[in-house]
Amino acid sequence: MGGLYGLLGVGLSIQWGVMKIANVALPAFTFLAAYVTFWSKHLYDFDPFFSIIIVIPISFVIGLAIYFFLHVTKVKPLQMLLVAFGFLLIFEGGMTAAWTGDMRAISTVYSEVAYQLGTFNIPLVRLLAFVVGVGILGLIYFLFERTYVGKGIRAIVDNRTVAMMYGINPHRTFPAIFGLATVLASVAGVFVGLTYSFTPQSTFIWLGKILAIVVLAGMGSIKGVFAAGLILALAENITGSILPVAWSDFVSYIILIFVLLIKPMGISGRSYE
């Protein structure tokens, strides 16, 4: 579960921290992907993992399109919020109109498989989500920290002018990153669709949680996102087992505020503000 949360948060974290674009429409992509997965299974009996392959290029393209729109219109950060919200509404409305407001759930052959680990029950799907989540996060981390491209990106964020002096061109890399983040959100969506039921309204419901993950992590920090996802997921599960389940969300937010009070920049302490 932690892995899934991490995955959900990393897209937004990148866009926000690295590129200062508060794209609150990202969760919409998550659920758009969930819907795509559902329909491909329902209509063509595609395996969800197969859907990932479909989802990746599509979301990348859409992400690029949105980036260029934002770039061309030279939107300021404050207005960005509005614009992103506008996109969110467009996606949500589109999904409701196209696929009705019904609740959907994806069920596959391996949906109910679970492993016993001592007293713990580990559902296969969640395990997969975790593995994929960690894998992707690890990949991104590697990308950012070790590769040339990644370092270039971080250089731009730290000091744009100097970076440009060194020949790093933000205009090439930014669209790619934006697209990448979109892809990440979508992949997360595939797994969300597998694990939970969803409706077009799910975007709104999850928005708060995803924001919490991102902030808890600290903007732009990959390690942080991972840790944050884990912590929140763990907290939810534990509270759910002890207290009436209703309080588990509550506890997540309390944890968020607590951590922020101690470390205003999130877990990793890094911020690209």
Binding site: L82, L89, I90, E92, G93, T96, A97, G101
Partner: peptide
Amino acid sequence: ELHIVLYGALLIALV
């Protein structure tokens, strides 16, 4: 339900 789509588009356009 499409009115939400229009609303979002309008927001973006106006901003």
